Computed example of a mutant assay.
Amino acid sequence: MNTSFGEPLPGVLAGLHVRRIIALRVVKVCALVTMAWAITACTAARLAYNQAHNATYWWLDSHVDFTNEQSTPVRGDINAFFQWHRTNELPVYAGLLQRWQTLAAQDLSGAQVCAEFDVIRQRIERAADASAQPMARLALQLDAAQLEHLKSRQARSNEEFADDFLQTSPGKRLDARFKRALSRSEMLYGRLDNDQKALLRNNLQASGFDPQRTQAERLRRQADLLQTVKEAQAAPETATERVRSHMARISQSPTPGFDAYTNDIVRQGCAQFAQLHNTTTPEQRTHAVRVLKGYEDDLRVLSAQR
């Protein structure tokens, strides 16, 4: 059920990408660190989450190259955001994981899987809204050299995307996607049998993911980000609302047909995940429940820390 690759639910949690733009990177790390990094192991997840504020800062710094004067207030905003997220969001994610343990023990429909995906998407949007003011403050501080630095980092990201999805052969891309999807599936269920592996690979091959269309949308969002920063700096009193509008154009693209395309990919992924899940044995489902319980326990420990 990956929004791009048709990977199963663990792939969504481990690989669901809030778009790689600076205005939403804090959201990505905060809202998804509990799902993306927690998919490794309980102890590793706790360490990762407790260091996520540093990871967020260094990611942002790699994109805009903070000055000494900017560093302290940016770190303060990031720390405050993570404290909010720990208090308000982690308990919700723990509750979701508790519910998923019940779902993992039974057959699922694609509609059920999509309903759970929509809950995650809503939590991400909530975290995005909470990050709007600090992101607006950051946008107002960026100078011309930093915007050029950001443009260079965007260009490098586009080259990396092209290397992964546009320049390799379809067969090699499928092999790489299958390897990732298999790893994530077996992390949840334990070892898949040959029929399940074949089903997973066939579903990936049938995915409607279009890398050229995705790259075009990435370019639109990157240009939109730069324009948003310039407009915010021209009218500082509107900065927060401009950042929120930019985020809204990520959630709902102005590109004709793109939202319908991504919604189709999501629905397809939901159905594919349900199809794979419904082939699992009682032992594999017991394994999944145990894994999800471990994630739940981990998030409850994290949410209790202050």
Rank of each mutant, 00 (worst) to 15 (best):
A127W: 01
A80H: 14
K151E: 10
A36I: 03
F165N: 05
R75N: 09
A128W: 07
F66S: 04
I78T: 02
R46F: 04
A45S: 06
A139E: 00
D118Q: 14
A104D: 07
E125A: 15
F117H: 04
E125D: 03
V74T: 10
Y49S: 05
V119C: 04
R156L: 15
P91A: 08
F161R: 03
A52F: 00
K151R: 14
L138Q: 02
K151G: 07
A48S: 11
S152Y: 08
H63S: 03
A48C: 07
Q106D: 10
A41P: 01
T40K: 11
P170W: 05
Q83S: 14
D129K: 06
W84I: 08
A48Q: 09
G110F: 12
D77P: 01
S62F: 00
D143V: 07
P134M: 04
R137D: 14
A36L: 09
A36T: 13
H63W: 14
V92F: 03
E159I: 07
Q112D: 11
T72G: 14
E125L: 08
A38E: 15
A145S: 10
A52L: 07
W100G: 12
W100Y: 13
Y93G: 02
N68W: 06
A115C: 01
A52E: 09
D129M: 11
S152V: 05
D143M: 08
D61H: 09
L90V: 06
D61M: 01
H63T: 09
N79G: 11
D65E: 05
T87H: 04
S71L: 12
S169A: 04
